[in-house]
């Protein structure tokens, strides 16, 4: 089986924007490096091959050779315009990673993109996703399930049990990528890199709309003059006609409340 690692080649020219980015400063993020290291560690305990993929022009092959020198078995470059939609890039990556039982990605790239490619990959493969992992505990048996800790908003953490095929994205702090041996560095420079031209199709995802509450009917203010009507709206001391205090059993009271809400337009 294959363990796929998706790394994003970023032609990073430093904090100063340049019209002519210099590929000598290109590379991949610490998060991507951590993803590669986790994949290599799992592969060492199993018979899996590590397939490393990236999207971009010929210059992007430098990061693939770097990954090969550190122990990846095979490399694929997706020849695609890097300004393409994340879903397009994800579909192209998935098309090149047949039979991958696990997909590792970095949680962020050097250009701090949207971080959406891992999700699109999971949607395309129709497998689970565990994104934004900050800690992992690999088992002795590479095929056994293992636990991972995921970062949530507000400093919260979520513990996940990874037991089947999944897309995982990790933060750079989880592990440090190994240094390549000299022999591997030399052989990687001659290793073949498969190049696949992107299809350009988008990943179809379920249609989703943002949450929007139903409109509430508001009664027109009462009054002959504008002043009276404004006073009706703004004067908190006067009664709006809504509100009634009743003393009843809970079930009766609930029925009265629902009736009032329907009457005032808050409920259908």
């Amino acid at each position: 089986m294959t363990i796929a690692v998706c790394i994003k080649w970023v032609n990073y020219s430093g904090p100063v924007e340049s019209d002519t980015p210099d590929e000598r400063f290109a590379g991949f993020s610490f998060a991507d490096q951590a993803a590669l290291e986790w994949a290599l560690r799992i592969a060492e305990k199993s018979a899996d091959e590590v397939l490393v993929l990236t999207a971009g022009p010929v210059g992007a092959e430098a990061v693939l050779r770097d990954a090969l020198s550190r122990g990846a078995h095979r490399a694929v470059r997706i020849d695609i315009d890097l300004t393409s939609d994340s879903s397009v890039i994800a579909r192209s990556l998935v098309g090149a990673m047949s039979q991958a039982r696990m997909v590792w990605c970095g949680d962020y790239s050097n250009d701090r993109g949207s971080g959406s490619v891992p999700s699109f990959i999971a949607a395309e493969l129709n497998i689970d996703q565990a994104l934004g992992l900050v800690a992992l505990e690999l088992p002795e048996n590479a095929n056994a399930s293992f636990t991972a800790v995921r970062r949530l908003d507000g400093g919260r953490r979520e513990q996940l049990l990874i037991s089947g095929p999944a897309v995982l994205s990790v933060e750079g702090s989880t592990i440090r990528l190994r240094r390549a041996s000299l022999k591997n560095t030399m052989s990687a420079s001659k290793q073949e890199i498969q190049v696949i031209t992107a299809t350009g199709d988008r990943v179809e995802t379920p249609a989703l709309r943002p949450y929007r509450p139903r409109p509430r009917v508001t009664l027109a203010p009462i009054g002959l003059t504008a002043l009276e009507r404004v006073k009706h709206i703004t004067d908190t001391s006067s009664s709006k006609g809504h509100g009634e205090t009743v003393h009843a059993e809970p079930s009766v009271a609930a029925t009265l409340i629902l009736e009032s809400l329907r009457k005032w337009g808050y409920l259908p």
């Binding site: 240094r179 390549a180 041996s181 000299l182 022999k183 591997n184 560095t185």
Partner: peptide, 9 residues
Amino acid sequence: STDRPDGDL
């Protein structure tokens, strides 16, 4: 010798 693992050449 180099600073890489397995770094003799």
